[in-house]
């Protein structure tokens, strides 16, 4: 299996995604933004559709659109503080609607490309995508190491974080943007429909297994590595879609832990 270049790249990408997913996933869960990943992945589709319509590189157009929407998301989260899921509903449906309209306007056969972004294809990952993921992973690990304490305080309680002197608005927007860029980069690999599962499930599983904050991140990485690699191997031998296979393995692990813990 490892003799194939595409499988080597798929495993490299899986390891990198496993390192970043629990870090972002944990903060998304604790900030009650689990669905934000889903929202941004739907918006990503609009970015891709716009890129294809205008003839620009879909990945870069995607990153640009997602970064703008990540900022809007924070604004809406503030406006609808009590019902923050409203912002999710507005942007998720809006993103999908824009994507469909732009696809309708594009008569150059871009539907096939959109399908690829919708369902993802970890086995068609390019060398360039692996390099971009590597840079992103290093960036997230560095940012996590530097801002771990500030993010811990912010996610525990925003008001005490504010009184402790943290720039909570700026941090929230930066976190949303980083999440958006991550989604824009991993969406073509795992697919828009499963991106949030890949980000959220390892942290959701590890939260039940560890008492400490650092422990959740560490166990989350182990769970993510297990799920990604087993999913990839499974999909290779069973001929099933990789993203969906990985997600099912996470859900199986989650179910087993829910029974015993």
């Amino acid at each position: 299996m490892f003799l194939y270049g595409f499988m080597q790249r798929a495993f490299q990408a899986s390891v990198l995604i496993s390192l970043i997913a629990p870090m972002l996933g944990l903060f998304l869960i604790l900030r009650r933004q689990s669905l934000m990943a889903d929202t941004l992945s739907h918006v990503s589709l609009a970015g891709v559709a716009l890129g294809l319509l205008l003839g620009y590189d879909p990945t870069w157009m995607n990153i640009l659109v997602v970064v703008v929407v990540a900022g809007i998301l924070e604004y809406l989260r503030k406006v609808y503080r009590t019902y923050s899921e409203i912002s999710i509903a507005i942007l998720m449906s809006g993103g999908m609607a824009v994507a469909l309209v732009l696809m309708g306007l594009n008569d150059s056969g871009a539907t096939v490309s959109i399908q690829q972004f919708l369902f993802g294809s970890i086995v068609t990952i390019s060398v360039q995508q692996v390099w971009m993921l590597l840079v992103l992973t290093l960036l997230i690990i560095i940012l996590y190491s530097v801002f771990r304490k500030a993010m811990y305080t912010l996610t525990f309680d925003e008001e005490t974080a504010y009184t402790a002197g943290l720039p909570i608005q700026f941090m929230s927007v930066m976190f949303n943007i980083l999440t958006g860029v991550t989604i824009a980069l991993i969406m073509p690999i795992v697919g828009a429909l499963l991106v949030s599962a890949i980000l959220i499930l390892p942290a959701a599983i590890s939260i039940r297994l560890s008492k400490s904050f650092n422990g959740v991140i560490f166990i989350g990485i182990v769970v993510a590595l297990f799920g990604m690699i087993m999913g990839l191997v499974g999909s290779y031998y069973l001929g099933t879609p990789p993203g969906a296979t990985i997600t099912l393995i996470y859900i199986a692990v989650f179910s087993v832990i829910a029974v015993f813990k």
Binding site: K149, A150, T153, F156, D157, E159, A164, S212, F213
Partner: peptide, 21 residues
């Protein structure tokens, strides 16, 4: 109103965070 009981943290981690500011 404020205590985030689902937060994955030990008592020691939380009290240590008081030193961060």
């Amino acid at each position: 109103a404020s205590f985030n009981a689902g937060f994955p943290s030990t008592v020691l981690e939380l009290v240590r965070s008081g030193r961060y500011p």
